[in-house]
Simulated assay, not measured.
Amino acid sequence: MGSEKARYSFRLVVAPLEAVEEDARFRISTWDNADGLASSVARIGLLVPPLAVAGGGRFRLISGFRRLAACRALGWPELPLRVPEGHPTPAECARLAIAENAWSRALNLIELSRAVNLLAQFSPAGRVDPEEAAAAGLPGGEAFLVRIAPLCRLPQAAQEAVLEEAVSLWTAAELARMPAEAAEALAGLFRRLKAGLNVQREVLTHTREIALREGVPVRELLAAPEFTALLDEAGGDPNETTRRVRRFLRRRRYPHLSAAEERFRTLLRELPLASGLRVQPPRDFEGTRFALQLEFETAEEARLLRGRLDRLLEHPAFGALLEGKRRGYETELQGRS
């Protein structure tokens, strides 16, 4: 396609609606509902006639599918069409369809993916020439075009997540490399979390690593009762759901975190804690810094807590707690088992 230098002139044709057929190969738009457009056409008229190729007394529509649907819904007997002169090749039709869409509005990621695949389909080399793509109105360089190409082949649920911007471009490209059922399950989770790229990257990476290590399909992992239960317990709050999911996956991916929590709770029960004195573990048991909290109202209560704190610091369980922090909880547990 890159070597073709065709320039097009068009003629306006008013064709019977029954003589117009859709050539779905050239559909770019992800918009299916034409109700709003039909209302606009009824009030204002058809400002830009669809693009069609003539042949044998019939017309193959290559751009303007929603406009055609709107006119059909309105019961129009005829439809004005823009028809390129001559006999455009499929490659030229692809270029025209993409350019009309891309130069009239910003395409979403799925539409861009469809456009890239359409160009590649009719390219002699089977790949997209970046200059050809730019001439048709597609943004980005070759790396971007390669990255978005698989998106239109994602399962429908995953494509919807992309269109809702519940899934980032990086995540969508990673989902495209996974089995369809895994991509669909993860896309459904991301639609529920409404999280940013960093969280999506973490969740996807942990999920994929757990599935690989345990030999469990991703879809089965995300459908497990213990996982669906934590989603239900979050009560529909995206932030709380995200926190629970991240915690679950980290612990499943790194079992020593669960061991750390178990050890902490065991040692905590041995400590001489009293009202007003608390020991808090590192957040999610990932760090090494503990917190010691004192609560009091009077100076006398503070003096009492000081004595209790001295006893706490001398207790063997407190020393074991800090020793476990330095050596790693999982190592300490193995040494005591």
Rank of each mutant, 00 (worst) to 15 (best):
A15S: 09
A15R: 06
P16V: 08
P16A: 01
E18Y: 15
E18N: 14
E18K: 12
V20W: 03
E22H: 04
E22Y: 08
E22I: 01
D23F: 06
D23R: 08
R25M: 09
R25T: 11
R25H: 13
F26A: 03
F26C: 00
F26G: 01
R27E: 13
I28F: 03
I28N: 00
S29W: 01
S29D: 10
S29Y: 01
T30V: 15
T30C: 07
W31K: 08
W31T: 14
D32H: 12
D32W: 14
N33H: 10
N33G: 06
N33A: 14
N33F: 07
A34M: 09
A34F: 06
D35L: 15
D35N: 10
D35R: 15
G36T: 06
A38F: 10
A38S: 14
A38T: 09
A38R: 11
V41I: 15
V41A: 02
V41Y: 05
V41E: 04
V41M: 05
A42Q: 12
A42L: 09
I44Q: 08
G45I: 06
G45C: 08
L46I: 07
L46D: 05
L47E: 13
L47A: 12
L47Q: 06
V48N: 03
V48P: 01
V48L: 02
P49Q: 10
P50N: 02
L51I: 12
A52V: 13
V53D: 12
V53R: 09
A54F: 03
A54P: 03
G55S: 11
G55R: 12
G56R: 02
G56S: 03
G56M: 06
G57I: 09
G57E: 00
G57V: 08
G57F: 00
R58H: 11
R58N: 13
R58Q: 14
F59R: 14
L61H: 09
I62V: 11
S63P: 00
R67M: 14
R67C: 12
L68Q: 11
L68N: 09
A69G: 05
A69R: 13
A70Y: 11
C71F: 07
C71V: 04
C71W: 13
L74R: 06
G75N: 08
P77T: 14
E78R: 13
P80F: 05
L81C: 07
L81A: 09
L81Q: 10
V83Q: 13
P84T: 15
G86D: 00
G86K: 12
G86H: 05
H87Y: 05
H87A: 15
P88Y: 00
P88W: 01
T89R: 11
P90S: 06
A91E: 07
E92H: 07
L96S: 05
L96V: 01
L96R: 07
A97H: 03
I98P: 01
A99C: 08
E100Q: 11
N101H: 08
N101F: 00
A102E: 05
A102G: 04
W103P: 00
S104C: 07
R105H: 13
L107A: 07
N108T: 11
L109C: 02
E111H: 02
E111G: 09
